[in-house]
Computed example of a mutant assay.
Amino acid sequence: MTVKNYFPANQNALVHVQSGLARKVAAYSDNVMCVEVHFEAGTIAALHSHPHEQITYVISGKFEFQVGEETYVVSAGDSLYKQPDILHGATCLEAGTLLDIFTPHREDFV
C-alpha cells in the first residue's frame, strides 16, 4: 500500500450500510483505520465479531453497547475497547456519531 498522509473529508464517500446506519472511512494505513459511523435513533448494529482490535469514541448521541457479556450505555465523550474476536453490537438510543479506530485496517471497508 502506498502511504497517504491526507484524507480530505470531501473525497471520502458516506456509505449507507443499512437503514439508519452509514459510515465514512477517514485516514488509514495498513496498520490502523479511522471510520466515522452515523446512526439514526433506533438503529441496531447486529452482534458480530472480527479479528481487528477496535476502539469506539462517542462523538454525539446515546448508545447501548453489548461487548462480550457486558452491556454499557454510552454518550458523548465515552469510549469502548473491543479486543479481537469479541462479540459486540449496539443499539442507537439517540441519533449520533461514533468514531471507530481499527487495527489493522478493515480491508472490507476500502
Rank of each mutant, 00 (worst) to 15 (best):
I86T: 13
L14R: 08
L98K: 00
E40M: 10
A26G: 10
V58R: 02
C34Q: 03
I59H: 04
A13L: 12
A22S: 09
T71I: 15
V74G: 01
N31P: 03
F65D: 03
K82E: 13
G89Q: 06
A27Y: 07
A13Q: 14
T97N: 02
V3H: 15
V15P: 01
Y6E: 13
P51M: 13
R106S: 10
P104G: 05
H88E: 06
F63M: 05
T97D: 01
Q83F: 11
H38K: 04
T2W: 07
G42T: 10
V25N: 00
M33K: 01
P84A: 11
N10I: 10
A46D: 15
A46S: 15
H16M: 04
D100Q: 06
V73K: 04
A95W: 05
F65M: 06
K62T: 13
D78G: 01
T103A: 12
F65H: 00
Q83M: 14
V32T: 07
A27Q: 09
H16W: 03
T43N: 11
L98R: 01
K82W: 07
R23I: 02
P84V: 07
A90W: 01
N10S: 15
C34N: 05
F39W: 01
P8A: 12
H52G: 11
D30G: 02
M33S: 03
E107L: 08
L87N: 14
C92F: 00
H16D: 06
Y81W: 12
L21T: 04
E70F: 06
P104V: 11
H38M: 06
I44W: 07
V25L: 02
Y6W: 13
K82S: 13
Y72T: 08
K4W: 09
N5R: 12
E36Q: 03
V15Q: 11
V15H: 07
V74T: 04
N10T: 14
D30A: 04
N5I: 10
R23A: 01
E107V: 08
G96N: 03
S49N: 15
K24R: 15
